[in-house]
Amino acid sequence: GAPPLPPYSAGGREVTMKKGDILTLLNSTNKDWWKVEVNDRQGFVPAAYVKKLDSGTGKELVLALYDYQEK
């Protein structure tokens, strides 16, 4: 199953993602919540729920390892 959710501390809205989604990583300075862009929406997802990909394009991409439903 998915890892436990860290307390929400990102101070911005969250976004929903599905397992297998490829998201653009915008900011990973917060260790628990990373800012991503998905379907032209920006928001935060739990860092433990995604994995960085080596895209080779200069853009940082992450793979959704679990479904996440915004609150």
Rank of each mutant, 00 (worst) to 15 (best):
A48D: 11
S55P: 10
V36P: 00
K35I: 14
L25N: 01
K31Q: 12
K71L: 13
I22P: 01
K31F: 06
T24N: 09
V62T: 02
A2N: 09
G12A: 07
E14L: 11
W33F: 04
T24E: 10
V36G: 00
D67S: 06
F44E: 02
G20A: 02
D54F: 10
W34S: 02
V62C: 10
T57C: 11
W33A: 01
A2G: 10
T24C: 08
V62D: 00
K19H: 05
L25W: 01
G11M: 05
Y8M: 13
T29M: 11
G20N: 05
V38M: 14
G56I: 14
L26M: 06
G58E: 11
N27R: 05
A48K: 11
R13I: 12
K71C: 12
L61A: 05
V36F: 02
M17P: 00
V45K: 00
W34Y: 06
E37S: 10
P6N: 02
F44L: 05
W34A: 02
D21N: 06
P7A: 11
V45E: 00
G58C: 07
E60S: 13
G11S: 13
G12R: 08
Y66P: 00
Y8V: 13
K19N: 03
L61Q: 12
D21M: 15
G58T: 14
F44K: 02
K35A: 07
P46A: 02
E70T: 12
G1C: 12
K71T: 15
D32I: 07
A48V: 11
A2S: 10
Q69G: 14
F44H: 04
L65V: 07
G11A: 14
L63W: 04
G20R: 01
S28I: 05
E14P: 14
T57L: 12
A64T: 03
V62K: 00
V62Y: 07
R41H: 12
V62Q: 00
A10W: 07
V38R: 14
K19P: 04
L61R: 09
D40L: 07
N39V: 12
Y8H: 08
A2K: 12
K51G: 05
K31C: 07
D32G: 08
S55C: 11
T57S: 15
V50P: 01
M17Y: 02
D32K: 05
G12Y: 09
K18D: 04
Y66I: 04
R41I: 15
A47G: 04
G56Y: 14
L61G: 03
K31Y: 06
G43C: 04
L63D: 01
S55F: 11
G56C: 11
T24S: 09
Y49C: 05
W34K: 00
K59I: 14
P7V: 06
P4A: 10
L53C: 07
